[in-house]
Computed example of a mutant assay.
Amino acid sequence: MPDLLEVKNIETYYDLVYAIRGASFAVEEGSITTILGNNGAGKSTILKTIMGQIEDQPDKGIIEFDGIPIQKWDTDKIVRKGIAYVPEGREVFKELTVHEHLLMGAYLRKDSSGIKQDIKQVFEYFPVLKERTNQWAGTLSGGEQQMLAIGRALMLRPRLLILDEPSLGLSPILVKEIFSIITEINSKGTTILLVEQNANMALSISSTGLILENGRFVMKGKAKDLLEDKDVKEFYLGIKSETSAKGYQRWKRKKAWR
């Protein structure tokens, strides 16, 4: 399959300090691609740069969606192109109902019958939301709000769905449920770019994994291979080995790529 999203050597800075330095990667159409990294590595910054949420950024580099450069586009133009974004922290509107949120997600669409069909599909993914149709979003649990944020994004009928830390703050049972639904969404044709700290769960559903350190990608490969890599196991999956901290630094230098 061709690449739907291609990021080429982008650099993004905050207050003259570079947060992303020469980052390049591609997301194959129909795939799930995961970006892993510790807190502060720059994962969310990459997503915000793609979505045009950081003014005048990237400072350098090219971001192509379906072969068209979109770097520095306004966010609403990027959304209209077919990219939906679920930010870290859910960001629902507390005094809007579940139904109103789903309608908001479809604000660019005019096909009323298709909108009704997609609301039905969202309720099939997340049956609890159907039970909460007329309930204010602010009264939902954290897990239900995450479901609603994903459902709202799906109402766009995006070609690319970008998810930032969808498992953050959720119970293990809900994490499994969310990732199962992400897999199902992908199976129906939606390409997914995922940022996640739950490395084991993310890699288990992905085709490609990338590891970000201090604004640079230091490793990429097939997700199944990363799951078996001894260094990834120790430093991202919490499986101890005899590798030392010095060994980790050598590993990062050896794996570094741009």
Rank of each mutant, 00 (worst) to 15 (best):
F25Q: 00
G61N: 05
Y85W: 10
G82W: 07
I68R: 12
D59S: 14
G82R: 11
I78Q: 04
L16A: 13
S24V: 05
A19E: 06
E28F: 03
D15G: 10
D74Q: 12
A41T: 06
P87F: 12
V17S: 12
V7T: 06
E88S: 13
D66T: 05
V86Q: 07
Q71D: 14
M51A: 02
I68G: 04
A84W: 00
A41P: 03
E88T: 10
I63D: 03
M51G: 04
I63R: 02
G52M: 02
I32C: 00
D59L: 15
T34I: 01
A23E: 01
I20Q: 03
F65S: 06
P69E: 13
I54S: 09
I70H: 06
E29Q: 13
Y85T: 08
W73E: 12
K43V: 07
F65R: 09
V86M: 10
R80Q: 14
K43T: 11
E11P: 00
Y14N: 09
L4D: 04
F25N: 07
A26I: 06
Y18E: 10
T75S: 14
W73G: 05
G40Q: 08
I68Y: 08
S24W: 00
G42C: 12
I78Y: 02
A84R: 01
G37S: 11
E55W: 09
T75E: 06
L16C: 09
P58E: 05
T12M: 08
Y18H: 13
